[in-house]
């Protein structure tokens, strides 16, 4: 197996673990953790393709990964702010109990 295939498989595995976490956990914070894992798996793909791609000196994949990290940080801040506000409103972070849209 080539190194690139190994990295891609690890990224696929991380993405699936994150997806499973986001889909099966009840706590809203754990769902956000799963989403972070999925974003990181995408970053690993970008960096791996940059490393083994034809023109690493053009920095395209590297820049994509850096901007992706910045956007993920913004997403985490807003997502966790939303979770805190929902907890203040509904007194729970259990997603199974959040079955109403009306406050």
């Amino acid at each position: 197996m080539t190194p690139l295939a190994g990295y891609l498989l690890i990224a696929a595995l991380l993405f699936s673990i994150g997806l499973a976490g986001a889909l099966t956990r009840r706590n809203a914070i754990l769902v956000l953790i799963g989403i972070e894992l999925m974003l990181n798996a995408a970053n690993l793909n970008l960096i791996a393709f940059w490393r083994y791609g034809p023109h690493p000196e053009a920095l395209t994949g590297m820049m994509f990964a850096i901007f992706s990290i910045a956007v993920a940080a913004a997403e985490a801040a807003v997502g966790l702010g939303l979770v805190i506000q929902i907890h203040r409103h509904a007194k729970t972070t259990d997603l199974d109990q959040m079955n109403r849209m009306k406050g």
Binding site: A5, L8, L9, A12, L13, F15, S16, I17, L19, A20, A22, L23, T24, R25, R26, N27, L30, L95, D96
Partner: peptide, 24 residues
């Protein structure tokens, strides 16, 4: 700690991994 629909979520994640792994 797991949702009521955890089996469906696990199946979806396993299917996604199967497709990605197959492609790689």
């Amino acid at each position: 700690v797991f949702s009521r629909t955890w089996l469906a979520g696990l199946a979806v994640a396993a299917a996604v991994f199967a497709v990605l792994g197959w492609a790689v």
